[in-house]
């Protein structure tokens, strides 16, 4: 299992990938709104999006684990 971390502090603007679905490397899992920009949080590898740990509208901090991806 690979942890997916937010690189920035901000608010979860949208969750773009469905938990349980398969994801490609670099696929956008969710968007964080910060500095009037949408910052994508991407999957580090191809696999299955095991879980998303945050909800839309929730505040996240830099380095926070926001999802887990099962490799392969």
């Amino acid at each position: 299992m690979k942890e997916v971390k937010s690189q920035v502090s901000g608010i979860v603007a949208a969750i773009e990938s469905e938990p349980g679905s398969s994801v490609e490397a670099d696929q956008v899992i969710l968007l964080i709104e910060s500095m009037k920009m949408e910052i994508p949080v991407e999957s580090p590898c191809a696999g299955t999006l095991a879980e998303v740990l945050v909800e839309e509208g929730e505040s996240v901090t830099e380095g926070q684990v926001v999802a887990n991806v099962r490799e392969g």
């Binding site: 968007l31 009037k36 920009m37 949408e38 910052i39 994508p40 991407e42």
Partner: peptide
């Protein structure tokens, strides 16, 4: 395409 969307 979206100018508000960041990228690495």
């Amino acid at each position: 395409e979206n100018p508000r969307r960041a990228y690495d």
